[in-house]
Structures are given as C-alpha cells and as structure tokens.
Write a protein that binds this DNA or RNA. Sequence first.
DNA 1: CTAAGTGCAAAATGTTTGCATACTT
DNA 2: AAGTATGCAAACATTTTGCACTTAG
Lengths: 140, 140
Amino acid sequence: MTTRAKYSTKQKEILLDFFKQNPGVHLSAGDVVAHLKKEGATIGQATIYRNLESLVSDGVIVKYTIEGSPACFEYISPDEHMGDEGDCYHCKCDKCGKIIHVSCEDVKALQKHFLEEHGFEIDLKRTIFYGVCSDCASSK
Amino acid sequence: MTTRAKYSTKQKEILLDFFKQNPGVHLSAGDVVAHLKKEGATIGQATIYRNLESLVSDGVIVKYTIEGSPACFEYISPDEHMGDEGDCYHCKCDKCGKIIHVSCEDVKALQKHFLEEHGFEIDLKRTIFYGVCSDCASSK
DNA sequence: CTAAGTGCAAAATGTTTGCATACTT
DNA sequence: AAGTATGCAAACATTTTGCACTTAG
C-alpha cells in the first residue's frame, strides 16, 4: 500500500516479539533499547527507531506523546483493533504529573460527534487529556 | 504563592509585551527568540526559556505541545480568563499534519462530565485531539 | 546480484544548566 | 549590600542521518 517492509530480518522479529510480550504497556524508544540490550539482543538503536516507525505505520503499535516525556509506543493486540475492549484514555495531571487511565462512554460519544459534525476522526489512543486531577484540585 | 518573580526587569517586559502584541497566536520558544532577535531586543535565549516558564506558572500564557513540533506558547488575554469567548480546541491530522481549530459545545460538555464524574478538570487549551481530518479520510 | 536493512558514530533538535557578571530593591 | 536575573557557552536528552557493511530474496 505505502512504504511497506520488504525483507524480514531478525531485528524486526526481535522488536515485534518484545512488543507482543508487553501488550498494553507503554514503552519509550529508550526503554526498548535498554530492555533489549539487557537481554543481549543484537539490535542497534538506529534500527530500533527505524523499525518503531514502520510498526507504527503498519498500525501494529501506536505512538503517542505525553508532554514532558519521550514518545511512547504501545502494542495494540489484534482483538483491540475490532472490539473496543480495553479502551482507555490517558489523562495527565499538570500538577502532580500522574497519568490516569479512564475508560468512559462519554468520550466515545464525543468521538462520534466529532466524526459526524466536524468530519474529524479522533484517535483516542493518541489523544492525551491534560488538566488537574481530583487529588491536586482538593489539596489546592 | 509559589515561585514568584521578584524583580521586574527589562527582559521580562520585552517578553510580555511581545505576547500581548500577539494574542491567540501560538509561538514556539524558537519563534520568540528569532522574532525578538530580529527586532534587536536585548534578551538571550536562556532568559526567554526561563521567563516563558514563569509566565506559564503565572497563568499569563499557556504552554502546549503538538506532536512533531516544539512546545507552543500562547497569550491568554484577560477577557478569555473569564468569559469563554474565543475558546477553540486544537485538532491535528496525523495524515497531513494540518492543525484544525474547532469551537464546539460538546467538548465543553465532556469537560463538565470529566469534572463531575471523574473529578478531572480538563484543560482544553492544552489538550490536542489527534486523528484524521475529513480531507484525508475521503482521499483514502 | 541487487535492493533493503543494519550499525556505528556523528549531527541535528529543543531545552536545560553552571557560573561569572549585571541589575533590582 | 544581598539576592535575583541575565548571558554565554556547555551539557543534555531524544531522535535523525550519512555511510560503509551485511543480509534477504
């Protein structure tokens, strides 16, 4: 379709395996580099960056950025691509930095509204809600 | 209250003036450095970064990050702090990179829902919605 | 054999910091 | 005078790139 991988290599396999072993976990490129190096895998960081990019464009992993941290990558299990099981949105508190996972119907309603009224299809895996959490609001 | 500025300096004035002259415009730190240098202003980039930070914590400007670009800063005019005039949310298309400004009641409804049901107060100025715009969706 | 993929180390970004100097109060 | 703020240049963290070498098909 677009820029598709052509050759299958050991490095690509190593990287994909690693993500499959960590479904739902968000890992930075640096995390991946560190973990794989610790396991003694034969894969350089440039290759990791390049292959992360191609896994993203293949839709195998999602990439999102939470302010203040390096980009995160997360494996999307095949089930998740269909049913909306396990959907959760990320909220980050600007006060304490805490990341909160929320699963909520109303967000999906907004998603639907955006699509129908604004023609914009929100990707909830990539969208981060910034604000102030209840703990920080009350202790203020 | 917290880490508040103590001395008033020419540099702080230059920076604040610059933002006041550009309300509603989002500027990266680099933009600010470049514009002020071009105007021959006497202010170094370290000072700009440091003062941007303090203007943010004073709530005079907002800082938000759009994936793929350096952090943005935007002046919030005093009017905006009260009435919700001029509120607009940023959406970024992952395909074409376009930034879309949307003003929409439903988003505020979601904001209210988050506050009431999840105790999380979303900051809409800082939250960026990622997804696919109508142009890109149709040309797919 | 040839195109694609890899690794290394160097470069490019964007932002932060240490420290001596200058300015505010 | 005492404590902030500034400017410079160096340090940082993350990501990207050039290029010679290796590998898959």
